[in-house]
Design a protein around this nucleic acid. Sequence first.
DNA 1: AACAGGGGCAACCGCTTGCCG
DNA 2: TCGGCAAGCGGTTGCCCCTGT
Length: 441
Amino acid sequence: MHKGQFTSKRGVPFCVCFRLYIHCWAGARRSREDRVGKRKLLERDRVELGERGARSAAMGHHCCSKQKVKRGLWSPEEDEKLVKYVTAHGHSCWSAVPKHAGLQRCGKSCRLRWINYLRPDLKRGTFSEQEERTIIDVHRILGNRWAQIAKHLPGRTDNEVKNFWNSCIKKKLIAQGLDPKTHNLLPASRTLLHGNGANPSNRAQFHSNGAIANDGGAVAATTQPFTISSPTKAAYDTAVTVGPPPEMAPAIYDVRNTAGMLMGHEHDQAAAGAEPIPGYPYTDNGGGVLMSFRDQNAGLQTSMDFMNRSSSSPSMDHAAGMPNGNGFSQAMGTAFVDVTAGMWTTAVESGMCAGIEVTQQQQPLAPQGLVHGEEVVGRPIVMNGAGAAAADKGMDMMDVSSVYGGAGATAFDLELMESCGLFCGAGGGTGNALEQLQWDC
DNA sequence: AACAGGGGCAACCGCTTGCCG
DNA sequence: TCGGCAAGCGGTTGCCCCTGT
């Protein structure tokens, strides 16, 4: 395993396309800036700081046992000395810095103070939502590798990122029923999500804000959940029993996210050489696998062509870890097919009906096989009712929730994805390129 | 107003990694 | 190849402020 390669908790390297599912919540964030800024000033002005420093100095220092060094918080005078010295002479050797700067500190302490607080390029203050999203996204992939995460946040230190994670983000994730280590649903939430499976319509609904409602989502989510509706077991049964009409044109699937993202794809299952999955109504249209994302909040739209290995957005390519635009591969396309098929199977077999609103549609195909934001006309796959409106539509609408929720926030459960086979190497070992993929840091 | 508990965050600890002789 | 040193890094600690009672 290469250093920097991200893996699942089972050690399976994940396909980078997970990184496209970037999520966050849109809940109001408590502004820390004023408070923190105030603290900084107070700290700077603290008169007693010298006394504390003197107390700390008596403690000695394990790595500098030969000399009497000061510990504890830095005084403004010490900061000034360090800044003045490092600015003038640099820090080629930290162990020599305190001596030359006239500080009774060990070099390690000087280094930390400089890196975490005195560096001129540091960005102080509260984390922006974008930074927060970045942290979550990268953490999902890299785990507690704070230094690597901090590299994605200019002006932020690993220590700062780590503290922000531990004091803020972690709690938010837990509040949303997510394991901050794996970013998967916590067992308790998972239980609530799956319920007893006896009656899908009574199944608990898990909302993106972490609230659990047992009655059709009575709890008003403060943020929009990522709702996907899926074919139900009835649909599955129907499909198995009846099967799609032979004259049926290639299907298009729009997976709608009420929070503002839309994605769709078409798939050539036969070309992929996969066995037909009962009820998984892909047809052979000779096309590729195309996902299109539209951020309805930001008004942005982009697409990924898994088969043709391209996307319409440099950021997508970057997110895929391939700044040259070749971030997509046949393996990814295959993997995507696998996972959607797996999700189909999982959802159907478990009765989870986890939210993928799959509407099978007659052709003609729109360019690239996508229809964005249009009323999908076609033959809805038969659904079970779970709530009046859903029942009327023949749909089983289970709010599976985004793991991250929030406006524009979507996510797939990594464990589910993994169980469905979307990891590097999926598709009969065709994922070599992906296995080599490393995080660009 | 006083107190207690919790949260935030700077700093420290100790292990790992990389470099050099 | 090995050992020593310095830097890097993640985990932990402990102080101080804030907030609720």
